[in-house]
Design a protein around this nucleic acid. Structure first.
Lengths: 153, 153
DNA sequence: GTTGAAAATACACATTT
DNA sequence: AAATGTGTATTTTCAAC
C-alpha cells in the first residue's frame, strides 16, 4: 500500500493542490511531461488513496459561520466504550471540522465552526450531555491568520 | 460583498464540497434544477469569493508528513511591528497549515504538519529565532479522529 | 428558468519512438 | 516508459425562447 513518490509525482500533486480544475494538458505542460504519463500517475495515486476528495473551499464567514473555536479536552475516562461514544459523537457533528487525540496532559483538541457563540454553547451542552468530560477549555479565534489545505511537498 | 444565499445555492455548494469533479448536469440533477441556472449561480458565488480554490485533498501520512502538532503561543509583545513579523513568518512557512489569533490567555494557535519530531524542532527553533515568543506549548497529535473541509451548510 | 446547440475540452487508447 | 496523435464522448458556455 506504500507508494513510491518521485519528483514528477510531487510536481503533479503540487499542481493538483494548487488548482484541481486544470486540464491534463495544462498540468502536463507545467510539469514538463505529456498527457499520458501524467494521467497514469494520477490514476495510480488515486487508487493508492494518496489523492483523495476533489473539493472546493468555501468562505466560512460568507456562509454565516463566523465563530471558530479550538476546544481543549481533558477526560478522566479512558475506557474503550467511552472513547467509542465520544468519537462517534464527534464524527456525527458537522460543526466539528477537526478532532485529534493528543499525547500528554490534554487528551483531545477539536476545531469547531459555528455561526456564533450561542451556537457553540449549544454544541458544548449537547456534547457534555452525551459523554462525560472532565475539563474543557475553549479558545476563541479572533482572526484566521492562515488556513490552507496545501501540504508541503 | 455580502451575498444572499438561498436554499438552492446551499444545495449546490453542498454538492461541490462533496465532489467538485461532478459535471454541471450531474449537480443540476441532484439539486433538482438544470444546467444553466446552476451554472449561473456557481459563477456568481465564485465572483463573490464565496467559492474559492478548487483542490484535491492529499493523504499527509502517505507523503511522509507523519507528525502533526498544535502549538499554543503566549507572547509578551503586542506591538504592530512584532505582530507583522510574526504573521509573515507564519505565512511564509508551508508546514504551518493553520494559524489563528486568539482571545484570552493564549495568544495564538498553530497547526503544523511535518515529517517527524525532529522536523518540528527545526521549525520551532527557526521560529523563535525570528521572533521573540514568551511561552510555547506543543501538543502532539497521536491520532487524527476527524479532519474535514466540509463546512456545515 | 428551460431548451438546444456550437465550441471547446477531456479521456482513453492506439501507434510510434 | 514516454510522447504523439486521434476518435469519441462529454462538458462548458451561451443564445434564443
Amino acid at each position: 500500500m506504500t507508494v513510491r513518490i518521485d519528483d514528477m509525482d510531487r510536481k503533479i500533486l503540487s499542481q493538483l493542490q494548487e488548482d484541481a480544475s486544470q486540464s491534463l494538458d495544462e498540468i502536463a505542460r507545467k510539469v514538463g511531461s505529456s498527457k499520458t504519463p501524467v494521467w497514469n500517475r494520477i490514476r495510480k495515486m488515486k487508487e493508492a488513496g494518496l489523492i483523495g476528495r476533489q473539493t472546493v473551499l468555501l468562505d466560512p464567514e460568507a456562509l454565516g459561520l463566523e465563530a471558530c473555536f479550538f476546544v481543549l479536552i481533558r477526560t478522566s475516562e479512558h475506557e474503550a466504550d467511552w472513547q467509542n461514544r465520544f468519537l462517534n459523537a464527534l464524527r456525527a457533528r458537522p460543526e466539528v471540522l477537526e478532532a485529534h487525540r493528543l499525547a500528554g496532559d490534554i487528551d483531545y483538541i477539536l476545531k469547531v465552526r459555528v455561526p456564533n457563540a450561542r451556537a457553540y454553547d449549544a454544541f458544548y451542552q449537547a456534547l457534555i450531555s452525551e459523554v462525560k468530560i472532565h475539563n474543557v477549555t475553549a479558545l476563541l479565534s479572533m482572526e484566521e491568520i492562515k488556513s490552507t489545505t496545501l501540504l508541503p511537498l
